[in-house]
Design a protein around this nucleic acid. Structure first.
Lengths: 144, 144
DNA sequence: ATTACTGCAAAAGATTTGCACTAGG
DNA sequence: CCTAGTGCAAATCTTTTGCAGTAAT
């Protein structure tokens, strides 16, 4: 079976990029996390087990992976920094304005929306970023 | 007739905020522009006619207007800074990856998508940010 | 052996903060 | 009059750049 980790690594290799221990660690983290991490989050998670890792390498690797289309930048989620999404299929990101949790929600409606916008605007679309903000079930309970 | 400018100013006033010449100028610019400006763009546009204006006041005012819901931040559009949108109705922003032009496109499908996501996720949604990236008609011609 | 990658330090760019002065209500 | 707003300078935070040493292929 082809794991997500293998997918990331072979994407790098096929583009002529070298597989370094740092990149391997970053890809492994990305393939295992449910979060939508920022560069700083990746760095803080991996730093303990790889003290030599520098934040700059994290930025480099995330940029490279994004250019190769293996991950997507979903922009700042109401906060400071750019969050990344390892799910590259069109889907909706939903973020809780209270606890900042981000989840992915698929929808069959996205494709039709994209085609409608393409027709109406005349643009040829190749990237989709849909973000809803709201209160997650947990935070709804807490606030009531 | 209630102009957009009046709308912005009365929103400020009703929240107990003072109407200063700077805020009036910023609101006037926002009500007249077709662009999706960043703070720096607003500043550069108004600086010639109001040399005393400071970038900081622009940030303050845009933040205030956003908190009041009069404008929306649409996040960085692939580039550096946060762009603002004076259209607060749910709609799609489409940005050209070549010339960076941003247009608004309405769609009746957004409401159904939002309801679907609300049902599937359990989140109570209150903000919508939909961004498509692609090539605008002009840039398609140029590249062919 | 090459050449790309890493990591440090410093830079760049956007946004925020502290504070004295000014002016809107 | 009194408080909020302004504008300056400096701080902060994220991200990028320059460069010498290091390591992947």
């Amino acid at each position: 079976m082809m794991t997500d980790l293998d997918h990331f690594l072979s994407t790098l290799k096929q583009s002529g990029m070298r597989i370094t221990p740092q990149r391997r660690a970053i890809c492994r983290y990305l393939s295992q996390t449910e979060a939508h991490p920022t560069a700083a989050m990746v760095y803080n998670e991996l730093k303990p087990e790889m003290p030599s890792l520098s934040l700059m390498t994290v930025y480099n690797t995330l940029n490279t992976l994004e250019e190769l289309g293996a991950i997507h930048a979903i922009g700042q989620a109401g906060d400071e920094a750019v969050h990344y999404d390892t799910d590259t299929e069109p889907h909706v990101n939903v973020i809780c304005t209270a606890c900042r949790k981000i989840i992915d929600v698929p929808s069959k409606k996205i494709d039709a929306l994209k085609r409608e916008i393409e027709t109406k605007s005349g643009y040829r679309l190749h990237n989709t970023r849909i973000l809803f903000e709201g209160l997650c079930p947990d935070c709804q309970k807490k606030s009531s």
